[in-house]
Design a protein around this nucleic acid. Sequence first.
DNA 1: AATTTGCGTAAGTAAATACTTACATATATA
DNA 2: TATATATGTAAGTATTTACTTACGCAAATT
Lengths: 101, 101
Amino acid sequence: MRRDVFQAIADPTRREIINLIAFQSLNLNAIADHFDVSRPAISQHIKILNECGLLNIRQDGRERFCEIKFDRLKEVANWIAQYQAFWNSKLDDLERHLANK
Amino acid sequence: MRRDVFQAIADPTRREIINLIAFQSLNLNAIADHFDVSRPAISQHIKILNECGLLNIRQDGRERFCEIKFDRLKEVANWIAQYQAFWNSKLDDLERHLANK
DNA sequence: AATTTGCGTAAGTAAATACTTACATATATA
DNA sequence: TATATATGTAAGTATTTACTTACGCAAATT
């Protein structure tokens, strides 16, 4: 059972959960309301996101509020950035080439 | 059978393939040599990467050279960028806060 | 012409994934 | 105190995934 960020964000439902809690923390039921799948299914997704360090759970009475943790997403950002640097430089080359025509 | 970039890059072997061909195009056997798994396994990974539009296959005689296609990776970059903007702004807030102490 | 090389693909398989329903438990409310 | 609410978790299941071995075929080499 792999538990890394890339695996975590591979699932569209989990990406949507991330999107939901990115700008406001929500409790589990509030999150589950946004989806067609059952509440336990969402609970399991949140467990995975938690294990991957993508969110934090703040217990408040019987409610559990999910707060985004961006740090792990930076791993993805860094992985992409190395190629981004390359495709940008290739774009620069192209622009220079066009400018010199 | 889902065929999207996030699914494609979820697998560590496929990420390594992307890394291998990012800066030079390689034929299938050259790629397979970098891994412990069998050649057909790599062939299947490349098929998936191809179907996801992450690489291009240039046939040269009996060889097939794999060339990276960055476009699809930009989808990932964009997905990350929306959060990146947010965590950067939060970082700015923190820095301002510290500067004003 | 015979052989080697580079590759795709089919079939089989163990493990992982994403879901379900059913149930358990702690906290809040009436 | 009885009930409602918010949630975790176990068990079962269909599907997907990542791999293997075996085979086939076209292009290159001998």
